[in-house]
Design a protein around this nucleic acid. Structure first.
Lengths: 117, 117
DNA sequence: ATCCAATATTCCTTGACGGGAATATACCCA
DNA sequence: TGGGTATATTCCCGTCAAGGAATATTGGAT
């Protein structure tokens, strides 16, 4: 998980991953598309590969790099554990506050009770 | 997004976030639980706060830090764009390969057709 | 007003990382 | 085998971030 975050924390690696969302590409294509020097592309791809975010397929003298699902699945699974936090319905909270402001205690209590279910 | 990844890429910050999943905690509690010196805790919390991953509530001379939902939602939204990649059913693919190997073309074609829906 | 507890900030040092330039390696073709 | 293309690796340098130690700040109690 940390390695995934580290890999994605670099702006150019992030751009590479985003670019690869369009499909596997060669090192040269990546460098050209993102305006990066070839050695830096190779180096970033190495980090991404070590993080298992990409894999390589040899195509003559080219290397096609493509995204791999595992780390993304892990990220999703990790995020799931935080669902209680990120999946809060803000509108719901807002309307509750509104009800409290207008002294509509009955409605607010109804609202609060509803959240238990 | 990058800032979120950067904030979570540090092992100790990651541990702090995980720890806060149990609810908002004071700086001292965090340091004690994770065996970190107080200044480093404050510094990491600053980074997390700038990344909007936590917020503070003053409680006498204590400061309670708690998780905030926004960056986690953004992370989820970002990840959604990669759903085609991470949500591949590998077993499905495996069975398709198996069918092809055993020359069971009919089953393979049935299988392939199913993926369109 | 003073003291203490909790937290924040600063200064310093060190290690890791990213970029550029140069070079090495691998593969294909004639 | 030689040459060219595509990619990987190495070396060097500058920057930045993390940890430790010391100090500053804030709030509450006596």
């Amino acid at each position: 998980m940390i390695e995934t975050f580290t890999a994605l924390a670099d702006p150019n690696r992030f751009r590479i991953v985003e670019y690869l969302l369009g499909g596997a590409r060669s090192v040269g294509a990546i460098g050209e598309a993102l305006n990066l020097n070839q050695p830096q592309v190779s180096k970033h791809l190495r980090v991404l590969k070590e993080a298992r975010l990409v894999d390589v397929e040899a195509r003559a003298q080219q290397r096609l790099y493509g995204l791999r699902p595992e780390p993304l699945r892990e990220l999703n699974a990790w995020l799931e554990r935080y669902r209680d936090i990120w999946d809060q319905r803000l509108e719901q909270l807002d309307s509750l506050i509104e009800e409290l402001k207008t002294q509509d205690l009955e409605a607010a209590q109804r609202h609060a009770r509803k959240k238990k279910g």
